[in-house]
Amino acid sequence: MADLSRFPRLPLIGLPTPIEPLEGLSRHLGSALSGVRLLVKRDDLAGFGGGGNKLRKLEFLLGAARREGADTVITVGALQSNHARLTAAAAARSGFACELVLTRTVKREDADYTGSGNRFLDDLFGARVHVLPGEADALAAAEERATRLREQGRRVYVFPSGGSSAVGCLGYAACADEILRQADAMGLALANIVVPNGSSGTIVLKNSGVAAVVVR
């Protein structure tokens, strides 16, 4: 793996998150996947703010924001975005003001959806939230908001949905290295790494030297 130490990084995760066997699922699928042992990387146990692998990107994104002297971060996502929630939590912990531009991509107006879960936590973590229609260009709106804040003397760092930028994806490069080091320490010979695909940030794992199976 490449040396990532030259990139600024704010520690947010208690590393490494564990790799645990899925014994029950392995037994259940045994007839279809003969001899296959399934394991899971428990990034839900990472750090704070409810956990989740988006913290890996935020370590590098907020590191870059601090290096650039930013005092405010803005990101985008859907109304119940996990990434937005973790950005708000990480920004609060790290001393950044945070603004979230969220779109109503799910056609629900009930309070259980619009005011609970991640949306409740966004407010609890002190983020300023801008809610737009589902068809809106959230990133363009975020850049416009950043321009207005800069005119007021604020120093703003903007990153896209899911934090999936070149800087953010350094978090998954670091994760690939972490997985391989753990596998070596555990005596595991990994054949495949299966990753979900939303904003495509985890695709960097395909360069880890282990075959990556992407679930869309």
Results as ranks from 00 to 15, higher is better:
114 T>F: 01
115 G>W: 06
116 S>M: 15
118 N>P: 02
118 N>L: 09
118 N>V: 07
118 N>D: 07
121 L>R: 06
122 D>T: 04
122 D>E: 11
122 D>F: 03
124 L>C: 13
125 F>E: 01
126 G>C: 09
126 G>I: 11
128 R>D: 06
130 H>S: 12
132 L>Y: 10
132 L>T: 09
134 G>V: 12
134 G>P: 08
134 G>C: 06
136 A>S: 13
137 D>I: 12
137 D>N: 15
138 A>D: 05
138 A>K: 01
138 A>I: 03
139 L>F: 14
140 A>D: 12
140 A>I: 05
140 A>T: 10
141 A>Q: 12
141 A>I: 08
142 A>D: 01
143 E>S: 04
143 E>W: 12
146 A>D: 02
146 A>F: 04
148 R>I: 03
149 L>I: 04
150 R>A: 12
151 E>D: 13
154 R>W: 10
154 R>S: 10
155 R>G: 03
155 R>N: 07
156 V>T: 06
157 Y>R: 02
158 V>A: 07
158 V>L: 04
159 F>C: 05
160 P>T: 02
162 G>H: 08
162 G>F: 08
163 G>S: 08
163 G>R: 01
167 V>D: 06
168 G>S: 09
168 G>F: 12
169 C>L: 12
169 C>D: 13
170 L>N: 04
171 G>S: 11
171 G>N: 07
172 Y>T: 09
172 Y>L: 14
175 C>E: 07
178 E>V: 13
178 E>H: 14
